[in-house]
Simulated scan of single mutants.
Amino acid sequence: MLLTILGGRGAWPDAGQACSGYLVEHDGFRLLVDPGYATVPRLLERVTPDQVDAVFITHGHPDHCADLNPLLRARTFCDDPSSPLPVHSLPGALDAVLALDRPGMLASAYVAHEFTAGSRLDIGPFHVQTRLLPHSVPNAGVRLTAGERVLVYTGDTGPSPDVVDLARDADLFLAEATYADQVPEDSRRYLTSARQAGRQAREADARHLLLTHLQPGTDMTAAQAAARTEYGGELGIAVSGLVVDLS
């Protein structure tokens, strides 16, 4: 299993960066997870639009799904349109982004597969376990298993025992860490700090922790140091262009 970070910023993409976006590959199958703002240009540096085999989206905030629109446009307007792209999401999560164009314009470019958080499904070679995690809108954390390797991604979430359960013994834990140490009081139910992510990784016995969704302006060194106070395993920051080979 191979993970390529397309972007790792939260809320909006600051200069030269992109929001949440992850390309996960196994046995030639390419799964795009959370195509947030500014991720498609980075995706297209690596693959053509028709080489994406499926999309999985954790929740409907635009920093996690806005670039689904240009991806579908690219597949619609190319000279040789490819088969409809399977797009997996929670019910209603993509209503806003799919409404950006006139009705029906992109209909041939995708086929929607809605799932309920907590369900299990298969996407290509990936066995997918989902879990409803606390956020300001419904958010599905995801555990991807393929080739005896496990990647867990939180989407956006407040601290919860369910995060630890989902990430148990993961080879790679890709964890939202919007703030380095202190989450503002009005967001503490919905977002996580790097320190909390480190604690969750330790409690889950995850082998590798990657912090993602850092708010623009967050000091990466401070975020990593905060996580390190709780977690002693392999630790890094999800930055555009980073490639992690789980094998």
Rank of each mutant, 00 (worst) to 15 (best):
A99M: 01
V111K: 11
S119T: 10
M105T: 14
M105D: 12
G104I: 01
R102H: 07
V87G: 00
A117C: 05
H88A: 00
V150E: 10
L85E: 05
A99D: 12
L133S: 04
F126H: 03
A140H: 07
G155I: 09
L100E: 10
D156S: 13
V142G: 08
V111N: 05
L133T: 04
D156R: 15
E148R: 13
L106M: 04
T116K: 03
S136M: 07
G124I: 09
Y153W: 10
A107D: 12
F126V: 05
A112E: 11
L90W: 02
H127C: 10
P84Y: 03
G147R: 13
T130Q: 06
S89C: 14
P86S: 04
F77R: 14
A117G: 05
N139S: 14
L98Q: 02
C78G: 11
V97E: 08
V87A: 02
V97R: 04
P86E: 01
T145Y: 05
G141W: 10
R131V: 08
P84Q: 08
S136F: 08
L132W: 00
Y110T: 00
F126D: 04
I123T: 04
N139C: 14
P86D: 02
A107M: 01
R149L: 10
V97W: 04
V97A: 02
V150S: 14
L100N: 03
G155S: 12
R120K: 12
T157W: 06
V152P: 07
D95R: 15
T116Y: 00
D80K: 15
F126R: 06
A117K: 02
F115V: 01
D122W: 09
V142W: 06
L151P: 10
D80E: 15
L151Y: 11
V111R: 14
P86A: 03
R149C: 06
T154K: 09
D156V: 14
P81W: 09
P103S: 01
V128D: 05
Q129G: 14
D122C: 06
I123E: 06
L85N: 03
V152E: 10
S108W: 07
L132E: 06
S83T: 14
V128N: 04
N139R: 11
L133Q: 08
N139M: 07
P91F: 09
S82K: 08
V142H: 09
Y110M: 03
G124W: 12
E114Y: 10
S108D: 15
S119K: 03
D101T: 12
R120Y: 07
C78V: 14
T116W: 00
R120E: 13
M105L: 13
D79P: 03
A93S: 15
V97Q: 07
F115T: 00
T145F: 05
S108P: 11
T154E: 04
G147M: 15
H135I: 00
